[in-house]
Amino acid sequence: MREHKIVVMGAMGAGKSTMVRAIASGKVVDTDVANTDARSSKLATTVAMDYADVDLPNGDRLRLYGTPGQDRFDFIWTMLLEGASGVIILLDATAPDLAGDITTYLRPLAAHDAQLPVVVGLSKADIAVLPDLDLINQHAAACLRPLPLVPFDARSAEEVFMLMDVLMGEVEATSLAG
């Protein structure tokens, strides 16, 4: 059995907690509190992390850590990245500045470990006009490198596992490249 620490990063409201809950079968530790950020209509927000263990059919285990989205908690991002096998960055397709959003989360990754496997999940793509993926990837390449971009529904366990499969492919490729 192999264990993989996966860190899920992204802006507040991008779907990090939803994604973790979708595949955790209700076994989630969360640190949600009442939202006091006037820029968001969310009732609750994560202030430390979400955490869940997920056993995969092949016997491997995912240890998922969802970060808080507000940049005032960026010190937690760095702590959670320690020992990570891979990272999923969630972008909310309805957000006005996806290029800026991806830059916000790739900068600490580049400073921590530029070789760490990363996949970008594009949430809420079902309710938004699909953004210019090439533009998003140009910003990713400027900060780190071109990255896989996967539109998905954070509420769907099947689609979240598809996103995890893409990430695990990146993890395996990085391991083989050594």
Rank of each mutant, 00 (worst) to 15 (best):
R63P: 00
R63T: 03
L64K: 00
Y65I: 07
G69K: 13
D71K: 14
F75K: 08
F75L: 06
I76K: 01
W77G: 04
W77E: 04
W77F: 06
E82L: 13
S85Q: 08
I89Q: 10
L90H: 02
A93Y: 05
T94W: 01
L98T: 03
L98N: 05
A99L: 02
I102M: 07
T103E: 15
Y105N: 10
R107I: 14
R107G: 03
R107T: 14
L109C: 09
L109E: 04
A110T: 13
A111C: 03
H112W: 13
Q115N: 14
P117S: 11
V119R: 08
V119F: 01
V120P: 05
G121E: 00
L122K: 06
K124C: 05
A125R: 11
D126A: 13
I127S: 13
A128H: 14
A128G: 14
V129E: 15
P131Y: 10
L133Y: 07
D134C: 11
L135S: 13
Q138F: 12
H139W: 13
H139L: 06
A140P: 08
C143L: 02
L144P: 10
R145C: 01
L149I: 12
V150M: 14
P151E: 12
A154Q: 04
E158R: 00
F161R: 00
F161M: 14
M168K: 12
M168A: 04
V171W: 12
E172S: 06
A173K: 13
A173H: 07
T174H: 05
S175I: 11
L176K: 05
A177S: 10
A177F: 04
